[in-house]
Simulated scan of single mutants.
Amino acid sequence: MATILHIDSSARSGGSDEHRFGSHSRRLTRTFVDKWRSIRPDDEIIYRDVGINPPKPVTGEWIHAAFTKPEEREPWMNAELEESDRLVDELLRADVIVAGVPMYNFGPPAQFKAYIDNIVRVGRTFGFDRNRQGVPYWPMVPAGKTLVILSARGDYGYGPGERLEDQNHVEPGVRTPFAYLGVTDVHSVAIEYDEFADERLQASIRSAERDVEALVQHLGSGLSKAA
């Protein structure tokens, strides 16, 4: 049995297939999860909505607590890291992380950045030793996890080799910290043309949903073979 960590980060509360002003990224993550359940009904799904219930941003107290050795932490430090610990625990349990991350002003939503800041934890998801030969940092998240980034954009042409590739900080902004932790198997699908609200948007939605369903089939069958 596999575990899927389903994360939504859109500020919109529903999918675009539910109402006019709904979220395209939520629509894609639900498509992913529904398709996954249809072919692997016994797998565990963990749901985390950081768009509606964002994690607390990192503070000076959080940093002080995180960089204090666990055996030396005072009670308030453990309380300060409680939410972060829950998020890290979920990440470590997951085999597949499917994250809905819409483009807000060329990058991920602040809510998702707060999530990333809470899971990049010294001693839990990455190691650090200034006396280590070579690079003093190393990933601590177990190998074999897969990250799926499902996004939505108002404009078009943000993909590799396209006209706005250098302005797309969503996928790179998510891939980089996850790779730092050890998650390097990454797939992405995005809906474009949202601001145009015409047939190009509808075609992009249809194409993205097909790609998501094909990706689920590919990943799900791969896990079955591995098992």
Results as ranks from 00 to 15, higher is better:
H6K: 15
A197N: 13
A2F: 03
T59S: 15
S38R: 05
A208Q: 04
D211Q: 14
D17C: 07
L91Q: 00
E165F: 01
G182Q: 09
K113T: 03
P139I: 03
R130P: 14
L164E: 10
E82W: 12
Y180M: 15
L91H: 00
D117H: 06
E72P: 01
F196T: 09
L147K: 10
V148D: 00
G123C: 09
G51P: 06
Y115C: 00
Y104D: 02
I97T: 12
S224D: 15
V212S: 02
D49E: 05
V50C: 04
E213L: 04
F196R: 06
F178M: 13
S204K: 02
E83V: 08
P102E: 02
I116D: 01
F126H: 09
P109W: 04
K225F: 13
E213V: 11
G51V: 03
A2E: 12
T29D: 09
L181H: 02
V122E: 12
S204E: 08
G14T: 12
E90C: 04
V170K: 06
D211R: 07
I52P: 01
T125Q: 08
R12H: 08
E192G: 08
P70D: 02
A143L: 08
T176F: 09
R124I: 10
R20C: 06
L201M: 13
A190L: 00
G134S: 12
R12M: 08
A190F: 03
E209L: 11
G51C: 09
Y156C: 11
G107Y: 05
A94S: 05
G123Y: 08
M1A: 13
S188Q: 05
S10A: 06
P136M: 11
V141C: 02
R130Y: 12
H64G: 00
P172W: 01
M140E: 12
S23G: 06
K56N: 14
P102T: 01
A66P: 08
S188N: 04
V212D: 07
D89I: 03
G173L: 11
N131V: 06
R206V: 07
E18W: 07
K113R: 14
V141A: 01
E18A: 14
W138I: 07
V216C: 05
G144F: 12
F32E: 04
Q217T: 10
L181Y: 06
L215S: 11
V122D: 05
V101Y: 05
V135H: 12
K69Y: 12
H64L: 02
G161H: 00
I149E: 03
I7R: 02
E83T: 11
R132V: 11
R20M: 12
T59A: 10
E72V: 04
R206C: 05
D117C: 09
E162W: 00
R26T: 09
V33G: 10
P142I: 07
K225Y: 11
